[in-house]
Every structure is written in C-alpha cells, then in structure tokens.
Design a protein around this nucleic acid. Structure first.
Lengths: 206, 206
DNA sequence: ACATAAATGTTGCCAGCGTCAACATAACTG
DNA sequence: CAGTTATGTTGACGCTGGCAACATTTATGT
C-alpha cells in the first residue's frame, strides 16, 4: 500500500534519514561536534526521536562506521574484478581506492579507525564488516602467492603489511599532519603510487 | 627560595600538574570522555582554574599531543644513535620504537593523528614538533641512500612510504580492528618485524 | 468492527560539559 | 606599603546525551 516495503509508521524511513543526515553532518564538521540533537533538527524531528531507532549516540556512530566498512569492502572487491588474475595490479588499484575513499570521507574514516568505538564484541556486525574489508586484501595476497608473484609467507601477516602501508598513508593524508613539502610537491595520487610501489617491491617474489 | 625555579604563586606548577593529570585520565579512558572538569578535580582545583593556564580545552589537548610528538622524536633519535651508520638497523629499530610508543600511549596517539586537532598554522609549535619526528625518518632514509643501501628517489616520498608502513601498523594495532587471528597468533613485536621487513625489502637497493 | 497492544514521536526534565564574567586572594613591583 | 598583575573560586549560561511520561499512529486479535 506504500511505495517501499519497509515504510514504517509516521515519518517514512526515519532510521535511514537519520543515518544519512548524520553522515552529512559528520563530514561537514567532525566527530566531536556531531550531536544527536543537530541530526534530529536536520531531519526535522524532536531531539529524542532518534532514540526510537538507535539505543544511544554510539549505536548511530557504529551504523555510520559499518556503512563505511561496507563501502570499503565493495571498493576493494571492485579493484579485484577490475584486474582479473593480476594480483599486482589488483593491489595497486586497491591502494588507490582505499586512499581515495579515505580522502572522500575523512571524518568517517577517523570514526572507523580512530578509536571512537569499542572494538570488542559489543557490536558484532561492525566486526564482521571490518573483517570483510580485510579479507579482500588477503584474497589478493593469496592469489599473488599462488601465482608465484608474491613472496611466500603467512598470508595474514603479509596482508597486514600491505594493509598497514595503505592504511598508514590514508591516515597520514587525512590527518593533515604531513609536512608542507609533501602537500605542495605531490598529489595524493602521486604519493599513493610511490607508497604502493615500495610496498609491492617488498612483496614481490624475485 | 623555593624547591624548583619556576614554582609560581598559589599552587605550585599547576600547568604541569594539569598536563600530567590530563595525560593520565586520557589514557585511563579515551579522548571523548576526557573532561576539563575531571582534570581539575583530579588536581584538586576549581573547574575553571585550568583556564588560567590554557585558553581552552583544545589548547590543553594540543599540549598533550605536542608532548607525544616530542617523545616520538626522542625515541626515533635514540634508534638512530643505537645503530650508528647502519640505516637498515636504524629503520628497523625506529619501527619498533614507533609501534611500542603507540601501544604504550594509544589514546595520546589517537589524539596526535586522529583528526581531533586543527592541523593548519593555528598551533605552530605542534606543527614543529610533528615535523621534527618526521625528520628523524628522513635522516635515516637519506643516510641509507648515501651509503647505497636504499634505492634512489625523492627522500620525502620514500620517507613517507616508510612512515606510512610503520604508522599504519601502529594505528591498526591500537584501533583494535585487526582480525582476531592476528591478535591470537602474533605478538605486536612479531607483526612489527614482518611489516618492517617487507618495507625494508621494498626500500633496499639490490 | 473495534478493542487492545505495539511502535513511533513529543515534551519536559536532569546532570554534566565547556566557557564566560565577577569576584577573591596571593605574589610581584615600584 | 600601595598598586598592579597573576592566579584561583563561585556562579551562571547554553548545549549535550539521555530518561520518564505522555500522545499518536499503526498493527493485531477477535
């Protein structure tokens, strides 16, 4: 009787609207200054309406972060599909996508990795989403090892090495703590190329 | 006439005590839940006393972060001195120290890199301290290039590649977002060794 | 159909926070 | 020793996250 199948009672899909507005407001400012009340006002509901859809502020933040991890997973899968059977190019492309996504949603990235959320099993769905992203990288490393293009060694550990390089660059770029000289002389793409190349060189069998 | 030379008026070096207490409380919980009022209570002064020494809460956070960068710089310098004229071992040791410091002060590390503070020229002393830490890494890379142990290339860019790898590992470790399997099977030291080795392999001339 | 329960949204309230203004006191300076 | 400055306190303000009580809309059972 309604347009979408899950359109609830009064407002329309308020949970989704809250999530969406929260993402916008988050990127417009930063995590610290994101208030549940501002989100409610943005959507046009009372300041306690969000509590009908999220237990507390943290639950909303978790949902935002989960969305970020899912988008990251999708991007990494895209990188794999873009270069079938070519782990080297897959890893290079994955690096670009990882960095690009971080730059596109810096505040969300900080939320995902900045220690703002508990990482134990309080939110199992968040853990699932984040580990799914990591498994994309693992797949690339494993493929490369099978094809003899990457060095042998524990898959988890080598994947972590690759992840660390890309992740570190992303975090440094959005932390804006890089020396000016790097910001002036080099674009993010150029720096990503350089970092990825170094990493690949360390991973490749020879 | 007094025990230390800079003991001011009523309290004793209140600024230092506030800074110290803030660091403790920060690591006991997290950035979000660190309140100026709690710091004041911890030190035993009224809730506005800190404003005589810090313009606002952010200024205090900046001071904490600056202290973190200075400690990092010192640690990296120590790594250089520990292995004179051996850039490879210097870089390996620097990696260990970087990761260890992050694990020792995870909340402070998040404060330093988590996008909680403005990174423009609002706080020049913070920028100075953070760039000083980076220059330690640059020195190692440059030495290695001069000795022919590291590949040629732009020093800034190669240093960034090294920094990214170490930094990424540190951030992933303290974000506690690593898959369980890595936490169970591997100690932080083991993971650091692996990541550093991969990075070194990518940097070394052959 | 209609009564009842469940889901959803609002109003009002509370404590805690950062911060400011006004005031109080201690230390330095002439 | 008077006056200025540095330091600390009290009280207030608006904002925040969150709870309780209430209102309204939708779903459900008979």
């Amino acid at each position: 009787m309604v347009t979408t199948q899950t359109k609830p009672y009064h407002h329309g899909d308020l949970r989704q609207e809250i999530l969406c507005a929260a993402c916008s407001l988050l990127e417009e400012n930063n995590i610290a200054s994101l208030s549940l009340r501002a989100v409610a006002k943005e959507v046009g509901v009372s300041h306690t309406a969000p509590y009908r859809h999220y237990k507390d502020k943290e639950s909303l933040l978790v949902d935002i972060a989960k969305q970020g991890f899912d988008e990251l997973s999708k991007d990494l899968m895209g990188a794999i599909q873009q270069h079938p059977d070519n782990p080297i190019e897959q890893l290079r492309e994955a690096g670009f996508r990882y960095v690009n996504l971080s730059i596109k949603h810096p505040q969300c990235t900080q939320l995902m990795f900045g220690g703002h959320l508990p990482c134990d099993d309080t939110y199992p769905e968040l853990k699932t989403s984040s580990e799914s992203a990591f498994s994309g990288l693992k797949f690339i490393i494993e493929s490369g090892q099978k094809q003899g293009q990457f060095i042998d060694g524990d898959v988890e550990t080598l994947s972590l090495a690759a992840w660390a390089g890309i992740h570190g660059l992303s975090m440094l770029l959005i932390s804006e703590r890089l020396p000016d000289i790097l910001k002036i002389d080099s674009s993010a793409r150029h720096l990503t190329e350089a970092v990825t190349a170094t990493m690949l060189s360390g991973l490749q069998a020879r």
